[in-house]
Amino acid sequence: MSLEVDRLECGYDRAPILHGVSLRVGPGELVAVVGSNGAGKTTLVRTIAGLLTVRSGDLRVDGSSFARTSAARRARSGIVMVPEGRRLFPQLTVGENIEMGRRAARGRTGGEDPVAALLDAFPILTERWDQQANLLSGGEQQMVALTRAVAARPRYLLLDEPSLGLSPLKTLEVFRLIEMIRERTGAGILLVEQMADQALQAADRAYVLELGRVSMEGPAAEVRASDEVRRAYLGVAG
């Protein structure tokens, strides 16, 4: 029972970005992938979500491969991605954006509505329900993007740089929301983040990605304490 990435190789056009990356996300687990820009983090999540094609290696969920299915089908099966830069539909309202998220959950209904809890916890979403998405602030947009993903009833949630462009305070708030999503939905979360420190604080386990390869993996606290991360980012130890 997990989402597995097995010796994945891929890239844009002719430029290889990932050179055999393997990782695993269990149900309910929060796994961080950290690494500097250009390490291949975004490529990794986009490939898992089906926006880029797999060159070699495999993607499996609960043991069955989905490396050849379309992005839409992956979303419908519960592998849901929040893309870098939020990518809300700019001219749709907040409500319509969240409604679009529900499309992916059609046929997987039942139980309590996962969105309701978020709406209770963050009344701002209800306040802005009929507002056009591109008029929201960056932090609000990220909240809507996360809520939209939750509406898709994710089994595994892929988050690409949720803190991008947000102030430190807003970043904290987003991480609080991510934590809450994990508790409420029980989804396994793959969090790709440049803000390594916060991501590693929140995560259970972590992988450090360097130049398209996993250079370290382990419990998040261990990774956080190691010099590896500092080196990966700043090129200097300590």
């Binding site: 926006l51 839409a72 990518r87 700019p90 001219q91 679009m100 499309r103 059609r106």
Partner: peptide, 12 residues
């Protein structure tokens, strides 16, 4: 507005 993101919503 955004075909790629639409595919992430399960719509082809």
């Amino acid at each position: 507005q955004d075909p790629e993101t639409t595919s992430l919503m399960g719509v082809s």
